[in-house]
């Protein structure tokens, strides 16, 4: 399949917890067949609904970290003096690098008079290729205290593209990361459409505007849907007006419905249950898919 025929939809939210993952999983079911990715590598949850069977696991490396070879360390203390990140700990005459504090600048490695510091690549997590009932899935998880750069997200997306081309699947659906930082940019650059899921709250409006500004920067078409819209209809209208004036299309509203949690308990997408929110999500999907 030619790359031009593949469409990629990323589901975003300003803050986390707006229902992004529940909607992504529902879209995966409604699309019939798509390549799915979980780009929320910091707190990946899509696998809890799609129950992927992992077929491949790959370690993910990013940057380096300093490690002192105890047998070669002379205890001169140079590393302790020059480290700007307070990453060198001493116990008696022995020196160790605190991996949490080490930023991987390599200064101690370069200036250790005994050349006793190694600088291996830092293992920051892993990424996986799996199969699900809705199609292939690429997902990942970042290690604790690892730096959440966009690199792992880019890796996940590249794999998804390879699979889409290879298996002739014309659609990629990504559960995106929260926020507006580097991982979000990595998840949205060059996609066909970004759907921003927001809630009708004061912070929801604030975060939405930042995500939409980002979409404009990267010339990515944007759509907006308001989840739990009925908890504050007034704010929903303000959000929809703000979305339209920021050049985004409004593709629907989803009501507050406890069945969303029920679906989670049953490890299902909301649309796999018969509920009011499922009907709402179907309409959002119809509107959103029409923009792809």
């Amino acid at each position: 399949m030619k790359k031009d025929h593949i469409r990629e939809l990323v589901v975003l939210s300003g803050k986390g917890g707006t229902g992004k993952t529940s909607i992504s999983a529902s879209f995966a079911v409604l699309a019939g067949k798509a390549v799915l990715t979980d780009c929320d590598v910091d707190a990946a949850d899509l696998h809890l609904l799609l129950r992927p069977e992992v077929e491949q696991r790959h370690a993910f490396f990013s940057g380096n970290e300093a490690v002192i070879r105890q047998q070669d360390c002379t205890g001169c203390g140079t590393c302790l003096d020059i480290c700007r990140f307070k990453a060198i700990n001493t116990t008696g005459a022995s020196y160790q690098v605190d991996p949490v504090a080490c930023e991987g600048c390599g200064v101690c490695v370069r200036f250790c008079p005994a050349s006793a510091i190694d600088f291996p690549k830092r293992n920051c997590g892993e990424w996986m290729v799996s199969t699900t009932r809705c199609g292939p899935m690429v997902h990942a998880h970042l290690g604790i205290a690892a730096e959440n750069s966009g690199k792992l997200v880019s890796t996940v997306r590249e794999q998804a593209w390879c699979i889409a081309v290879d298996k002739r699947i014309p659609l990629i659906i990504s559960d995106g990361p929260p926020g507006i930082g580097c991982p979000v940019i990595a998840s949205m650059s060059g996609v066909s459409l970004a759907l921003v899921v927001t809630e009708p709250t004061v912070s929801g409006l604030h975060d939405l505007q930042r995500v939409l500004a980002l979409a404009r920067h990267f010339s990515v078409p944007a759509a907006v849907c308001v989840n739990k819209w009925d908890i504050n209809p007034g704010q929903t209208e303000r959000i929809e007006a703000a979305a339209r004036s920021a050049g985004a299309e409004v593709t629907g509203r989803i009501r507050y419905d406890r069945s969303v949690t029920q679906a989670q308990h049953q490890q299902k997408a909301v649309v796999e249950l018969t509920t009011a929110a499922a009907d709402d999500i179907r309409l959002v999907w119809k509107q959103t898919a029409a923009m792809l």
Binding site: K15, G16, T21, D42, A43, D45, L48, V100, L142, I144, A145, A146, E147, N148, P178, G179, T261, Q264, H265, Q267
Partner: peptide, 27 residues
């Protein structure tokens, strides 16, 4: 901040106690 990456550890490094907020869902 949300998550488990380095901004979170930078915040926790200044704390004496951590109060974790969650809900009774699989997520």
């Amino acid at each position: 901040p949300p998550g488990t990456s380095c901004p979170v550890t930078a915040t926790l490094l200044g704390a004496d106690y951590v109060l974790l907020v969650t809900d009774p869902t699989p997520f």
